[in-house]
Design a protein around this nucleic acid. Sequence first.
DNA 1: AACAATTTAATTGTGCGCAATATTAAATTC
DNA 2: GAATTTAATATTGCGCACAATTAAATTGTT
Lengths: 149, 149
Amino acid sequence: MSDKKKPANQTLRLDNQLCFALYSTSLAMTKMYKPMLDANGLTYPQYLVMLVLWEEDGLTVSQIGERLFLDSGTLTPLLKRMESTGLLLRLRDTEDERRVYVGLTAAGNSLRRTATDLPSCVQSLTGCSLSEIVSLSENIKAFRQRLMR
Amino acid sequence: MSDKKKPANQTLRLDNQLCFALYSTSLAMTKMYKPMLDANGLTYPQYLVMLVLWEEDGLTVSQIGERLFLDSGTLTPLLKRMESTGLLLRLRDTEDERRVYVGLTAAGNSLRRTATDLPSCVQSLTGCSLSEIVSLSENIKAFRQRLMR
DNA sequence: AACAATTTAATTGTGCGCAATATTAAATTC
DNA sequence: GAATTTAATATTGCGCACAATTAAATTGTT
């Protein structure tokens, strides 16, 4: 019985997979955010919804989904939880009653100020320069563009 | 009532967030893999476990977790599902009965051959050169290193 | 007007991801 | 050698993601 390792097929090696680099790094990023988001009563996907609404309030569920690349099966329960914690309101459009508009409450709006220093916290925790972060971010977004065609 | 947009706080803009670039691109990557993995009866996290075991069979749950940065709360039910679909076996160590070893079945091993052309499929679907993919992957992994310190 | 097609959101069910806790077993200490 | 500590896995509960389906309302066509 030799101590046989499989012939190291480079194409299938875990550490060569871009998908795993993305997957594991995204999860690591979420873990880094978690304590700061906990302090603000948000989960990470909820934080993303807030980023969208802080940019432009009063969007429909599907408009939020377009921005975040998430569907209603993900967003509906998430938005309901956020409504129950008082961050936003869900209002059915009276003109087209299929639509549901999502609007920030005063609490949701004021949370913006405390969240402002969150990205810089992350920057200092990683020890990366802004230009490094911007460059990596742009490269990843360019790759995402190609994936989504 | 002016058509007031919020002052465009650049630090909180969704499209400037590296975390969202990672998050959305990772999810997009998983969606790209999905049809190919479906054809092989695997989910994406299950595919990652297979990559680990194809490199080195007979690891414990925690060893798999170290490679994938996932904990037992994620892996235990996932491995049980994979056991029930016949890809692997879970065997408690008789020497230290706290350990559970995970070993591939013949079916799990043979799946490796059909999976070999999966990464190249992804490459052709994205239209990226190998060097582009390698470079992006290395940059992301270097960033992950910093996050995990 | 009637009816088909389209749009939008909600619902249902499965599989993660992870924190917190429990359980079990081995190792260490007293 | 009994008790404590440590280590490894399992369990529970919550919150996503997403496919598939359903429901409801608008639009388009005849």
